[in-house]
Design a binder for these strands. Sequence first.
RNA 1: CGGAGUAUGGCGCAGUCUGGUAGCGCACCUGGUUUGGGACCAGGGGGUCCAAGGUUCGAAUCCUUGUGCUCCGACCA
Length: 446
Amino acid sequence: MRLNPAVRLSEYFMPTLKENPAEAEIASHRLMLRAGMIRQSASGIYSWLPMGYRVLRKIEQIVREEQDRAGANEILMPTIQSADLWRKSGRYDDYGKEMLRITDRHDREMLFGPTNEELITDLFRDGAVSYKDCPQMMYHIQWKFRDEVRPRFGVMRGREFFMKDGYSFDLTVEDGLKSYNRMFVSYLRTYAKMGLQVIPMRADTGPIGGENSHEFIILAETGESEVFCHEDFLSLDPNAEAVNYKGDLQPIVDQWTSMYAATEEMHDEGKFEAEVPEGKRVSARGIEVGHIFFFGTKYSEPLGAVVQDKEGKQVPVQMGSYGIGVSRLIGAIIEAHHDENGIIWPESVAPFQVGIINLRVGDDACDEACEGMFTKLQEAGVEVMYDDRDTKAGAKFADMDLIGLPWQIAVGPRSLKNGQVEVKNRRTGEKQEVSIEAALELVTVS
RNA sequence: CGGAGUAUGGCGCAGUCUGGUAGCGCACCUGGUUUGGGACCAGGGGGUCCAAGGUUCGAAUCCUUGUGCUCCGACCA
């Protein structure tokens, strides 16, 4: 996947809004609308405009890379599924009205997939015959649909959403839990790479089912549920050391599950107080950005996903499933990274690293300086957005803060007379007047 | 799915009570003056007032029935 490394704002569809749309309640929703990243098409259903889509793909790519590292293989399954498989697993009725049911021209019952356990179990059943076909881990990143009663918070709780869902197939429970651990660790690393401090919490399994399950939660004021955890979670860095996914991951998992962490439903106040010293007790709100399950033979049995073991017996495979809400993550990242002026993107997911602001379009010196930097940054492989629109300086500054690129370079006649431009760090707000060369150096190195 | 709102130009809103054919701010277009943190002056374009039906000489406004969207709650990645 390669994203266009450089764009001119005059040629980029980024309809920003000065005022807050009435429909948006929380920061991430407001900012995504205001920054021209998304537009609502129907309740809980959004179009992704160029910049929003760009961020979505960046997040998707981070997820993909870590899945690949963990040994999962990417596939792509359809959005529309047949009802038959869901009848076999018994979930056609269980899922209730959340599942969008569709009838085709031949009156066949179809559905827009809310998840893919049935489909992939059937794929595995079809292609696997022996214990030698295990272990196997596959994932796909695809649009899902859940007909939420009450969609809200923009992409945080949409009806149509983009999700990574992965599935593991193992011969034994022991091996299955190893796969579970692999995903557990890869999840920690994935979120950390997006600038999120994530906390795994033992979870309720819901309609997916199973015994072993963790939710991955980030703390945010606008989180949907109350969570409780040990403060030390907030200083753990999953990427501090390299990881060998083929090795024993249990120690890492143990480290991350030994401290108290629970969502509202699983919370035990007595245990919380017993295990966590008073000064270390964190009670906050959390956003769920991922959920993993080990559920054994819940689907392999009814759907007949069996392999022959060494003794020649037919045994159902042990399965797990692993979800990351990719589109939701954008909302979560913005909730964690914004201020009163707009978004503050972590560099790894920023749509562009640098924004060049031409304060006087039409002034030869400004135009030349901007064009020169625009070209040089592209050549250096730095993703850059050039605001070459013929509008007021104030509007450009405001837009640039709103869309939250990590670095801004403002070029105006005043400083340019002395050969200088202003470089601003969006996160710290720190500004410095430096030469063009120094500016390029500054934004390229970091 | 229970409760509560709301629907008027791209966005934010007034007008509805008390019926007379639509207005304000921002944004947009043209010209001019400006030009380093959402400028100023002048001119201008853009609206089936959510929909259908009804009452009336006349409906954004009153009545009826729908629909969309939002918020609170229960539920969910």
